[in-house]
Design a protein around this nucleic acid. Structure first.
Lengths: 258, 258
DNA sequence: CGAACTGTTGAGAGGCTTCAAGCCTAGTGG
DNA sequence: CCACTAGGCTTGAAGCCTCTCAACAGTTCG
């Protein structure tokens, strides 16, 4: 990693030597050496601290954002003022690409959850790449497909499952998505508010469920940290397996972003 | 319209004279005359009656389906066995295009809701077109973008709103999507079960809500038909405007499919 | 015409929210 | 660096909203 100084907003970030900024962004993995170099020259990357809004619902984009480090949440504001988180973007993910294809303002808001490094790539550059490199265009489409499936999955899960099932399922999702450290602590620190905003419930309810899992020795709450103790039981709860039947082994919550 | 005889499954359908099958499918609007003709020669269209399953979750696709007439619902099966409808496809819509880009089996099921005419176009044909015609590829991406937004929208609405709000909002969506006839009857006949399966609630609850709207003279129920009487009130309910504030004029439910 | 499914309504239970109050934590400014 | 403050976290009590279960009427289809 390069120099990472905590400053308020859009602070310039310098890549470590001998390393290109975009070298481990899957989307760019198929670019030729030349294309990648040209791209690198054109972009600016910046350091964003927690709570920075990258873009707002209704804004017009001028390019895509590529997350190089950190975690960003994507949400839509409901009429009530509540946030509905529809996905996360993390290392290697691209956001705001929708406006590249449909000439419409953003339909969601992107906000930094954990201090992040991000770079902005103008649409003109991306368009050029899409035209010159077919595999690149394909990658974009695949991105979208995954997101779409994730979104539908989340929909199904929220619409049809109880808060306990959803919560258990989401903890497992977080484990898959962000991993756990050597003590089985989930490697992402979300507020209870955010957790509730993903799962479509009220903070108080979420806390009660977590607290209940805690008492049942399924998880262990240490401040904001969540330690996963009994993964099997989480699976069972998430699938409502009081009686063991109809077990489909699909990943339930999938990565999503916009 | 050509001959439309009600038969059980995959009955061959013949286009009316002087009319190509695909002439009013938006996706194909940018094809050259030659491309369109070639495509027409290669495809088969068929007549599908209500309840026919076009494809099942888990199946592998060999091509996309293009809906020329009728209405198809797209749903995912929850572990409980309940269906979560994630979208509809109607005249001019394309389904099952996801597998074109990601080599995965279907993540949803498509079932005919109203007798439909549909044609199947093999992936090889589509791939050829995508390679030869850039605007065509672009159209695909735009399709996906719309769907994605719709999915996220639906998610937000289901996760954050009461059954009354959702129901009112969905009636308005149906009006926008399928239109109403001269008597203000919504031009789509869905079972209460399906309605409930879109909105993530139980049939009994949905019926109670509709019945309540009926008594309040907001809608009028005539068998399965729904007549919209007081659109303004539906809007108000859908936005929970007991006190008039924070009114954002967005379309709430959007078209979705897979 | 009968069977199977859909639609409707009621009673009752309980899951989840609302409201409220207090504690705790993190971030700010002096 | 510490005190302060706003916002996050937690818990309780109360009640509504939605679901479950059940029974029956109506409808569709073979």
């Amino acid at each position: 990693m390069g120099t990472l100084i905590h400053k308020k907003k859009f602070k310039r970030y310098n890549a470590p030597e001998n390393e290109t900024l975009l070298h481990n962004v899957p989307l760019f993995s198929e670019l030729t050496r030349d294309e990648l170099c040209n791209l690198e020259l054109a972009i600016q990357s910046s350091l964003l601290s927690k709570r920075t809004i990258i873009y707002h619902e209704g804004m017009r984009h001028t390019g895509i954002y590529c997350i190089l480090e950190g975690i960003v949440k994507i949400y839509m504001q409901a009429a009530s003022g509540k946030q509905q988180i529809v996905g996360f973007a993390t290392k290697g993910d691209i956001i705001a690409y929708r406006s590249l294809f449909v000439n419409e303002p953003a339909c969601s808001t992107a906000e930094v959850m954990q201090d992040s490094v991000m770079c902005h790539i103008s649409y003109s550059h991306i368009t050029r790449l899409i035209k010159s490199n077919k595999t690149f265009a394909y990658h974009f489409i695949q991105l979208m497909c995954k997101e779409l499936e994730g979104s539908n999955s989340l929909l199904k899960n929220i619409a049809q499952r109880s808060v306990r099932e959803r919560t258990a399922g989401f903890l497992l999702f977080l484990k898959d998505q962000f991993g756990v450290d050597e003590r089985n602590h989930i490697r992402v620190s979300m507020t209870r508010i955010d957790l509730a905003n993903v799962l479509g419930m009220v903070t108080a309810t979420l806390i009660r469920v977590l607290s209940d899992f805690n008492k049942s020795n399924i998880i262990n709450l240490i401040g904001k940290e969540i330690e996963l103790i009994d993964i099997d039981k989480l699976h069972a709860i998430s699938r409502n397996l009081i009686n063991i039947d109809s077990v489909k082994d699909d990943v339930i919550f999938r990565k999503k972003m916009t």
